[in-house]
């Protein structure tokens, strides 16, 4: 079978579908103080899944607020700096109006994913962290 680290080079999704891959990519991002991008990406996925799995409305609101406060509100944070202003104000409005929707972080997640695919991910595949592992 193909070793996992070769699969990681196929696509960002292959990498993020493997625990070791996630761990190594997170280490790499951490070196550049960008690990929040990955955490945010997973937080968005988890938030979307919450809808069908469990969760009172109260819990969803609390989680949406937590994601907003941690990653969006702080303008100096890596996630906040990378997301478009319009996307941020859309999320802000959802939180302020307590209008939480499973898809409310989708656009922001896509923006972060596009950045990772175009930048951090190809750099990761050339990084010492990855090469030493292989």
């Amino acid at each position: 079978p193909t070793p996992p680290y070769l699969k990681w080079a196929e696509s960002l999704h292959s990498l993020l579908d493997d625990q070791d891959g996630i761990h190594l990519f997170r280490t790499f991002l951490g070196q550049e103080d960008r690990a929040d991008m990955l955490d945010f990406w997973f937080a968005c996925s988890g938030f979307r899944k919450l809808d069908s799995r469990e969760g009172s409305e109260e819990k969803k609101v609390k989680l949406a607020k937590a994601i907003y406060r941690k990653y969006i509100l702080d303008n100096g944070g890596i996630v906040s700096r990378q997301i478009k202003a319009a996307t941020k104000s859309f999320i802000r409005d959802c939180v302020l109006k307590l209008h939480v929707d499973p898809a409310m972080f989708e656009q922001a997640q896509t923006e972060i994913q596009t950045l990772m695919e175009g930048n951090s991910y190809p750099l990761f595949l050339k990084s010492d962290v990855y090469l030493e592992y292989t």
């Binding site: 996992p4 993020l16 625990q19 996630i22 997973f42 919450l50 799995r53 609390k62 994601i67 406060r69």
Partner: peptide, 20 residues
């Protein structure tokens, strides 16, 4: 009731793949 940080951490973990 979980704190916001706990809730966030659980949410992140829930989205990650399970061990091979």
């Amino acid at each position: 009731m979980d704190s916001e940080d706990d809730l966030l951490q659980k949410c992140i973990t829930s989205a990650m793949p399970k061990q091979r």
